[in-house]
């Protein structure tokens, strides 16, 4: 069975058809690139997969479970986490709390235990603190634990967003333009970083990216979107010379 199967997914904003008949199948452990010109509908696909929007038509199945109609928190609980094109951290919360929040659903105490700080409250909070620390230590963010997220330098904010996504031990990670605003050296680091987390956390990754070096360098498969429709799908080197893709990008930067 496929880990994720999106079929005939269509989504309209009023009269605008942002995604039309989108199809995607993910095998466990894959690293798939989702590319396409500006406004092609890539981010909308992520929003549909994570429950921010409900698809007008079509179905998205996660290990056979239908995602369309489920809330973001329910989909998150199944093992889907993401980052955002424009960084969306909880700015006025500490680095530590940004990560702790992402494990909210894994904390096993109820409101009464929280109101009186009794029962499982102490042990569960201790566990989550240890976990968050370990994770931030692993990504060299431990020195910033107590800082407000908004005070981190840009690069670290990007990183923290990924760490926050990893905090809930997701199965599928969706990265929306992780290389935005990075210089070539940083992009090199990022490529190694993505490969590493995929291996260490056993992730399946879908990556939206305009940086062709990154996409061609690490993705095993590419899906090309234009005007909300899938226009090509295949190995990176085949996609590079695909006539429809060249046409879609005409007037924009040429892939490669």
């Amino acid at each position: 069975m496929h880990l994720l199967k999106a079929e005939h997914v269509t989504h309209r904003f009023g009269g605008l058809c942002a995604v039309s008949d989108f199809n995607l199948r993910l095998e466990p452990g894959e690293l798939v690139g989702l590319i396409g010109p500006n406004g092609a509908g890539k981010t909308t696909v992520f929003n549909l997969m994570t429950g921010v929007y409900e698809a007008s038509q079509g179905s998205i199945e996660f290990e056979g479970e239908e995602l369309v109609g489920q809330s973001p928190s329910e989909i998150h609980a199944l093992g889907m986490a993401r980052t955002f094109q424009n960084i969306r951290l909880f700015k006025k919360m500490t680095v530590l709390d940004n990560v702790r929040l992402a494990r909210y659903a894994k904390l096993g105490y109820n409101p009464i235990e929280a109101l009186f700080h009794i029962g499982r409250f102490r042990s569960e909070e201790k566990k989550i603190l240890a976990h968050a620390r370990e994770l931030l230590e692993l990504f060299d963010l431990a020195g910033h634990l107590g800082e407000l997220a908004e005070n981190l330098p840009y690069g670290l904010q990007r990183k923290l967003e990924i760490v926050r996504a990893l905090a809930s031990n997701p199965r599928i990670l969706l990265l929306d333009e992780p290389a935005a605003g990075m210089n070539p050296a940083e992009i090199g680091h990022l490529m190694a970083f993505i490969q590493k987390i995929r291996k260490d956390f056993g992730l399946t990754i879908v990556l939206i990216e305009h940086q062709m070096r990154l996409v061609m360098g690490i993705c095993e498969r590419l899906v090309v979107l234009d005007f909300g429709a899938t226009i090509a799908e295949g190995l990176p080197r085949d996609i590079q010379s695909h006539p429809k893709v060249l046409e879609a990008y005409l007037g924009e930067e040429t892939p490669g």
Partner: peptide
């Protein structure tokens, strides 16, 4: 923490698994 995250960004809070 959930309340603070709702204050900061409600949609992202939901996306982080908070009911």
């Amino acid at each position: 923490r959930g309340m603070a995250a709702i204050r900061e960004d409600e949609i992202v809070c939901d996306l982080c698994g908070v009911h």
